[in-house]
Write a protein that binds this DNA or RNA. Sequence first.
DNA 1: ATTTTCACTTGCATTTCACAAGTAAGATGG
DNA 2: CCATCTTACTTGTGAAATGCAAGTGAAAAT
Lengths: 145, 145
Amino acid sequence: MPKKTSSPKRRSGCPLNASVEILGDRWSLLIIRDMMLRGFRSYKEFLESYERIATNILADRLRKLVAHGIITTERDPSDGRKLIYSLTTKGIDLAPVLTEMVLWAAGHEDTGNQTLVRLMQKDKEKFLAAVRQRWAEKSIRSTAN
Amino acid sequence: MPKKTSSPKRRSGCPLNASVEILGDRWSLLIIRDMMLRGFRSYKEFLESYERIATNILADRLRKLVAHGIITTERDPSDGRKLIYSLTTKGIDLAPVLTEMVLWAAGHEDTGNQTLVRLMQKDKEKFLAAVRQRWAEKSIRSTAN
DNA sequence: ATTTTCACTTGCATTTCACAAGTAAGATGG
DNA sequence: CCATCTTACTTGTGAAATGCAAGTGAAAAT
């Protein structure tokens, strides 16, 4: 059973508004992309991603994503300094959103990464299944919450 | 032929990054929702939408959406004060993005507008076809640019 | 024991945002 | 045809979010 008792003062009950309030900024979806498509799982990896997010913004976004139940954190058992971030099912369920945003930009803007785009265009459903599968293999824990 | 010669300083060539730079704020997608789903076409209608956007932000977002080729403006021939905003094909092509964001929030957050959600869930493709059809009827001009 | 790595926090300047008020051009009513 | 209203904005101001540089504390590596 998904659903969540609505957080305080939301501007409206529209589902699109909910999505926009949670994900509508210049960084959150890029962090999710890095986890979903590139397998990034630590603060350091996110920091070193191409778009160069600032440290305070990254910490803030990770905190908010955890608060919204999109990702979870755990200590790395083999290195007590490291935190491992994982997507929850709620996070993995953003795959179709990311896919459509990629396909839209690829069709209307001048962008790179054409191999990824071609894969998505060729068979969207197959691509989504692969993402879900890959994540299920990597971490049993991440789908639990 | 779509595509556009890349705008100045983009953070990266990733298509998702392009989408996020264009649409990643708390208002742009709500304006597009109002046009696509509710048929809003004037400044005043957007202003009176439930989430209560501020006048300066609305003007700024409309300007940016025009600059990105997602909407166009024309004078209302029957009232010289009014401007009519229309979605371009690039704008209509955002329908799948909106749909996936609505379905994600509907599945994981406590939201309203269940009739719309149910319609989308029942047959996504049929819903998208209906949106495209409805827009094509309303305005031939909007699909031209 | 010292240095390095990791995941942050703090401070500060800049940008964006929200809210209230004002404006100019065109429409409407008497 | 003149005052009033409507529409689509702009301007001003304070608050909040962002970006950058530097610093911190705990754990790991040397």
